[in-house]
């Protein structure tokens, strides 16, 4: 029980980080980035590659992988997503990002084969004791990393000028453009940030789970559930729903059976949406298409 709770909060914060990237992208651009799952896996494989071939530590490697993923995000946004326009934009964005995800999945399968891998370090399997519960170091360090990055992101969003322009674009794009914000530039950088966080999320995910390219399906279904539950485009929603959902999943797994724990995720989603179609923190009941 206690173990499930602690584990849920620690893992949940990593999901919250990845979901924040996703909700930021949706909020600013109305793009549903289905490729977020494969970007997480790509980030994990980047860390794996750096460690395997250059012996770079997982956490130190983030100094390389985070900027790399940021650039990948900007390139993807400029090449493909910036071209989407019109009333079917959001529906099209799902398909475009899905196609991108298929291409990356194919490349990863060829480059790294379909065998499962896991990121290992000297400290991955060591653990320490709190309240009589053994917690592996890597979970705790992942949690710290997620907290640091989330605080950084929130500081940027709420305490800087650029953050203000992002929040303005989140609230109302045309109004933001009217007061002189370069929405195009904000969109591009937001997409970059949204993808960059997957490098950190992917590293922690890869250190705590065995993965291959097709693990991305499982990831993206969870991340999408989290941001819908939190309210699409809501930053606080992604944070709360991310931690709450993973904790709930672990609790169900501990009390009932791990087999049905994923199910709890989707049952909660369906129940919440039946009463609050806009999600927990969603503000608009219906965004105009």
């Amino acid at each position: 029980m206690v173990h499930a709770l602690i584990d849920g909060v620690l893992t949940g914060s990593v999901y919250a980080l990845m979901a924040t990237g996703l909700t930021l992208i949706f909020g600013v651009m109305e793009i549903i980035n289905v490729a977020q799952g494969i970007f997480v896996i790509l980030g994990a494989y980047l860390s794996y590659y750096l460690q395997l071939h250059f012996g770079i530590d997982l956490f130190a490697g983030l100094l390389i992988t985070i900027p790399t993923m940021f650039v990948v995000g900007i390139v993807v946004q400029r090449l493909f997503l910036a071209r989407l326009k019109g009333p079917e934009k959001t529906a099209m964005s799902i398909l475009v990002t899905y196609a991108i995800s298929l291409v990356i999945e194919g490349i990863l399968n060829i480059a790294f084969t379909v065998n499962n891998v896991q990121l290992n370090t000297s400290y991955t399997n060591k653990s320490f004791q709190v309240f009589g519960v053994y917690i592996p170091y890597i979970y705790f360090m992942g949690f710290l990393l997620a907290i640091v990055l989330l605080s950084g992101l929130y500081y940027m969003l709420y305490r800087t000028r650029f953050g203000a322009s992002i929040r303005a674009s989140l609230a109302d794009q045309s109004a933001a453009a009217l007061v002189g914000i370069d929405v195009k530039k904000v969109s591009t950088i937001c997409f970059g940030i949204g993808i960059a966080v997957t490098a950190a999320g992917g590293m922690v995910f890869g250190a705590t789970n065995a993965f291959n390219a097709s693990t991305s399906y499982d990831l993206i279904s969870r991340l999408l559930t989290i941001i819908v539950l939190g309210g699409m485009g809501s930053l606080a929603g992604a944070l709360v729903a991310g931690i709450a959902m993973v904790t709930l999943e672990d609790l169900v797994g501990a009390i009932w059976s791990p087999v049905w724990s994923t199910m709890a995720f989707f049952v909660v989603l369906v129940v919440v949406l039946s009463f609050r179609p806009q999600g927990l923190f969603g503000q608009q009941s219906a965004r105009a298409a």
């Binding site: 949706f26 959001t90 199910m263 369906v270 039946s274 806009q278 999600g279």
Partner: peptide, 20 residues
């Protein structure tokens, strides 16, 4: 009950429930 964008995501969630 929900509008388009959310509908897409719910259909994915329901799909995974059935698979499970």
């Amino acid at each position: 009950r929900v509008r388009r964008h959310t509908f897409v995501v719910i259909t994915i969630a329901i799909f995974f429930t059935f698979q499970l």
